[in-house]
Design a protein around this nucleic acid. Sequence first.
DNA 1: CGGCAAATTGAGGTAGATCAATGTCGGTGG
DNA 2: CCACCGACATTGATCTACCTCAATTTGCCG
Lengths: 255, 255
Amino acid sequence: MAHNQRTATDCRSGIRCGPTPMIEIKTAQAWQGVADCQACAIRAMVLFADLNEEDFRSIHQPIDDLLIAAGARLYPEGGPAGSLFTVRTGTVKLVRLLADGQERIVRLLRAGQVAGLEALTTGVYDSEAVALEDTQVCRIPGAVVRSLSQRSPRLHGQLMQQWHGAVREADAWLADINSGPASRRVRQLILRMRLPGDPAVVRLFSREDMGAMTGLTLETVSRELSALARTGLIEPLDRQGRSYRICDPDALALR
Amino acid sequence: MAHNQRTATDCRSGIRCGPTPMIEIKTAQAWQGVADCQACAIRAMVLFADLNEEDFRSIHQPIDDLLIAAGARLYPEGGPAGSLFTVRTGTVKLVRLLADGQERIVRLLRAGQVAGLEALTTGVYDSEAVALEDTQVCRIPGAVVRSLSQRSPRLHGQLMQQWHGAVREADAWLADINSGPASRRVRQLILRMRLPGDPAVVRLFSREDMGAMTGLTLETVSRELSALARTGLIEPLDRQGRSYRICDPDALALR
DNA sequence: CGGCAAATTGAGGTAGATCAATGTCGGTGG
DNA sequence: CCACCGACATTGATCTACCTCAATTTGCCG
């Protein structure tokens, strides 16, 4: 692709707090928070899985529960990284701006993953984070995690796993959906975007975003999707091109 | 690129121990080892920078100093990850094998970086690691680092930095040298491969490896290099196409 | 000197980019 | 309720950057 100059969907608004904005969770209330988080989609916020009450008492900064509207930005590339964000529900894209103004989506984060781990080290966000749909996150000050991770071996282990997951994702992103012909890229992307609850269904994104993920133009992505639908490997479930039924997963996985 | 079927340089030999094979470093000798490592290229083995003698006494498994011959493999993709490897000198490529037999280089590791951090979590290597040139590494059992990292806050911090560096590298690999037209990819790769000691000189690799790094064919890489040399942005320093002088860094960096 | 591996260069074909038109959905206002 | 509008997906027609295939060239080593 000879870099298309179009810019991605506008993210005009900053962080927007939803119905339950800025819920402060600290000390005694923290247990409530943990209980909530353990209840929330599977592993979300596992970071704090085994902290004890004393640990929570030592937290002197607020942990906020935020609802990020679709298209809103969690933080900008190069911005000061004060907090990390555990994704509870929804999807976050990590975007890097190229020198020529193009945007490249380097990774997606979903429930249980953490955005902004940079807050633990350099203090500068390496990429922009934007919600792809309405998304719930917990905003945790980096200092909180840094100090707790010294004390709690299991938090320490969870951080390792988060980092490892990020590296794995990044490598897979390159090897799976940014390698080979257009058809393979789109097919791999589809397989990765299956709903955890129902693997026979995918929720996709704007063709522009899908292009920024695969390194293709939006037109090529659209054509490939149409071709897959025509061949019967997938079947549209709506008329906006966002949901598809996967009819033949094995055929999609072919090379 | 419609996936070229050629396979990468053969890595027939396994790990080969060089002139100083299997030097066991433990307990009392460990201090020697640390001293050596601090002397070795800049930050190599910073992982152990601030451990004390008691920490070293608690190491019950051998830490080996290995010399990996160019082309030899440290570990295979999917293999059991028992150890991690700090690179002291040389260059290691991390390779992922695609479904169609193609190989994709997802990252390079140089002095001060660590290969096989997976040994700290899943215990399975996510990618193959192969020395691109004669390379010195320290092989450290994952169990050693796991247990020490509980005790030493600074080792803990060093691990965070290593993970973060890996993610940054992976993202940059995608955004910088796997995006945009062929010329840009090759130029970005050149800029990244400058010698730390002399930023006006680059050491490159086989055109095949460079293709696996950029997602281009070896012919395209060769053509782009020739074009850059013809335009005077770079100048060959040998006749094997491995070393070049960078004449105009700013022009190389252009978009 | 001969043989091999790797780099370079050339000629032609093609996958995907580009430019452009049309179609579809959802919202808004009369 | 319908006409209009803007955003986005789809489809078509060309164009081109890169791949593919293939021939030379170059350097290295026995």
